[in-house]
């Protein structure tokens, strides 16, 4: 009976954070900070979608950027070619999601039969292929140079866009939370733990893996759409390996298999990126801030394999276990003495 209380307690905590985030742009009158937090939230969505693959289903994908890029390009191209209105924006998100869904379905069906590392290699190859297509198809994508476009009128105000992104991340979080706690989500966790055993329980694991990869692809595409609008610019960088690695880093540093973890990871990575590169003016070494990332990453994998949130959670459960055991011991003694 402890669980619902714990759940509601963490829910209240999250609720307070959301309230603080809503209030944030009105309290802090800083354009750069608003943009930074918007950026964090967008990458939070991407990292959560990646966690569905890595943390819940145990699939390592090196091609997650392709879905992000599809969303980004769909929105950018549609806003550029048609009118730059909010309806086109919503439509472009929908189109991006559908394309990403179809692509992840096909890729998943073709490759998820493979063992994990072969799958990882193949996803990398396919997203590499997409990157080449985007670079060569200059009439549409303008290649590596990219192009700027006008964002819808309402988003001229950074705060409005910020609030939209905040609303979307809350919705995505609730949907994903529900998803991983559904019977289907439980089977995904079983696949991560022991795929062969899941099969012998009578679950067709391939279907589950494809569902997970479609969902992750669709959500990543949403993140991509928002990213493009936040920059008002798109180029092939959205399809590169770096996006995938960012998502991977956020998920691992924050904690795989917890939806909060990737969000924390997004905060850590994005703000580190922002402030470390800001330090470059005074200390030239920070022009290579990526070095520090490498170090953080190595240290995280060695000392906190469960990530920030995962480690805290484990400690919390340990503490609760100890408390529970203290409660159990005298009870069993009573039983023996009563015998």
């Amino acid at each position: 009976m402890n669980k619902p209380i714990l759940l509601s307690r963490s829910n209240i905590f999250l609720f307070i954070i959301v309230l603080a985030l809503i209030a944030f742009p009105f309290v802090m009158d800083s354009r750069t900070l608003t943009i930074l937090v918007t950026q964090i939230l967008i990458f939070g969505i991407l990292a959560m979608s990646y966690d569905i693959l890595l943390g819940y289903t145990g699939i390592v994908s090196f091609g997650h950027a392709m879905f992000f890029g599809i969303g980004a390009y769909c929105t950018a191209i549609m806003l550029n070619d048609f009118e730059s209105t909010i309806f086109v924006f919503i439509g472009s998100i929908a189109v991006g999601m559908v394309i990403a869904g179809i692509l992840s379905f096909i890729v998943g069906l073709l490759t998820l039969r493979l063992k994990s590392h072969f799958f990882a290699m193949l996803t990398m190859a396919i997203s590499g292929l997409l990157l080449v297509v985007a670079e060569k198809w200059r009439s549409v994508t303008k290649g590596n140079d990219g192009f700027t476009f006008k964002a819808p009128e309402v988003f001229k105000d950074r705060i409005v866009f910020y609030l939209v992104v905040l609303a979307l991340i809350v919705i995505v979080f609730i949907v994903l939370k529900r998803f991983v706690n559904s019977p289907l989500g439980r089977v995904l966790i079983a696949v991560r733990e022991n795929e062969q055993r899941t099969k012998s329980l009578g679950f067709k694991t391939l279907y589950y893996k494809v569902i997970a990869s479609v969902l992750a692809g669709v959500i990543a595409s949403l993140a991509g759409s928002l990213y493009a609008v936040s920059l008002r610019f798109v180029n092939t960088a959205v399809l590169t390996m770096e996006i995938t690695l960012d998502a991977l880093l956020m998920t691992i540093i924050g904690g795989v298999g917890t939806l909060i973890g990737p969000l924390v990871g997004a905060v850590v990575i994005e703000s580190a990126q922002h402030y470390l590169s800001g330090l470059a003016r005074d200390f030239p070494i920070f022009e290579r801030w990526i070095i520090f990332f490498g170090i953080i990453y190595i240290l995280a994998v060695i000392f906190f394999p469960k990530g920030i949130v995962g480690t805290i959670q484990a400690k919390y459960f340990q503490w609760k276990d100890k408390k529970a055991q203290l409660n159990v011991v005298p009870l069993s003694k009573n039983k023996e003495s009563s015998k």
């Binding site: 706690n181 559904s182 019977p183 289907l184």
Partner: peptide, 13 residues
Amino acid sequence: SREKIRFNPFKHY
């Protein structure tokens, strides 16, 4: 698995 609840993504488990 026995109860054939396989693909329900909405309800809490």
